[in-house]
Amino acid sequence: MRTETSLYGVVTKSANGSVAEVAANFRALLDTKGITVFAVIDQAAAAQTTNLTLRDTVLIIFGNPAAGTAVMAAAPLAGLDLPLKVLIWDDAGVTRLSYYSPETITDRHHLDPATTAGLSAINTLTDAVTNL
């Protein structure tokens, strides 16, 4: 597994399998952990509805309301970053998962790290799906 963090606080990891397979594995993992999936957006399929082409790209929006509520209570604008999101996308034949790091969200909203500790689960969840 290769992990990169960009200047903008986006973590990107490589995963084995197609975008559809990795998205299905990630959804299954969230389900087994009892984590709420708020939406799955197939952005490539949406592009096709307007006769446009986009590489395979799926956005999964998920979270734990107990963890996210405390963050948004402390900083209402954190609701722009929550629920958590993972973008699963094709990068010239390599499937990638990208998301904002919990530290980026903490820094962006000037939050106490203890308040955002629950957000770190995204690292463990994405590690689990990229190590398959």
Rank of each mutant, 00 (worst) to 15 (best):
M1A: 15
M1S: 10
R2I: 13
T3N: 13
T3I: 13
E4A: 15
T5Q: 07
T5E: 04
L7H: 13
Y8T: 09
Y8L: 11
Y8H: 15
G9C: 04
T12N: 09
T12M: 09
N16H: 14
L29F: 04
L29Y: 02
L29H: 04
L30M: 06
L30V: 07
D31P: 08
V37F: 01
A39L: 06
A39I: 06
D42S: 07
A46H: 09
A46K: 14
A47V: 03
V58P: 01
L59T: 13
P65Q: 07
A66E: 13
V71E: 05
M72D: 09
A73K: 06
A75P: 10
L77F: 13
A78D: 08
L80D: 01
D81H: 07
L82W: 02
L87R: 00
L87P: 00
I88C: 04
W89A: 02
D90Q: 06
A92S: 08
V94P: 08
V94S: 13
R96Y: 11
R96H: 09
S98E: 02
E103T: 08
D107N: 11
H110M: 12
P113S: 09
T115Y: 07
T115K: 02
S120W: 12
N123Y: 14
T124D: 13
T126N: 03
A128I: 05
A128R: 07
V129G: 03
V129Y: 12
N131E: 13
N131W: 09
L132M: 14
L132A: 11
